[in-house]
């Protein structure tokens, strides 16, 4: 069970019940809307129970991007899918804490392998 699509340049792929989204670096506000739209469609279409959002290409995560991640996690939750954000750069983690944006409610893992294992184990 595998499918590919792209949303405003950010590729979306579903592998064994897990939607994997790689966020492109230069997302503007409009492409975020397109991406969210495609993500919920993909979850509904595939019946995925997990979503992995790869932010390793994001040089920065500002409050706008942080809200986007939070919203994507909430949307996925309503469709009964668990979201894990992976690939956060160390400098981004430091900046988010100083910004006061600790992404509460957004689960993270170091990489996609670990996230996939967590989703498969259902814990």
């Amino acid at each position: 069970m595998e499918s590919h699509s792209t949303s405003g340049g950010s590729p979306i792929v579903t592998i064994t019940g897990c939607v994997i989204v790689a966020i492109r670096d230069d997302l503007d506000d409009r492409s975020v809307m397109v991406l969210q739209d495609h993500l919920v469609d993909e979850i509904a279409r595939t019946g995925a129970t997990g979503v992995i959002i790869d932010i390793s290409s994001l040089e920065i995560v500002d409050t706008f991007a942080g809200r986007m991640l939070g919203a994507m996690a909430e949307m996925s939750k309503m469709l009964n899918a668990r979201t894990i954000v992976v690939g956060m750069r160390p400098a981004v983690a430091m900046t988010l804490v100083e910004l006061g944006m600790t992404l509460q409610g957004v689960e993270t893992a170091l990489n996609a392998d670990r996230a996939m294992a967590l989703i498969k184990a259902g814990r």
Partner: peptide
């Protein structure tokens, strides 16, 4: 890297 990230994030806001 940390200074770059912090400054660019501030600029973005």
């Amino acid at each position: 890297a940390v200074k770059r990230t912090k400054f660019v994030t501030a600029v973005s806001e």
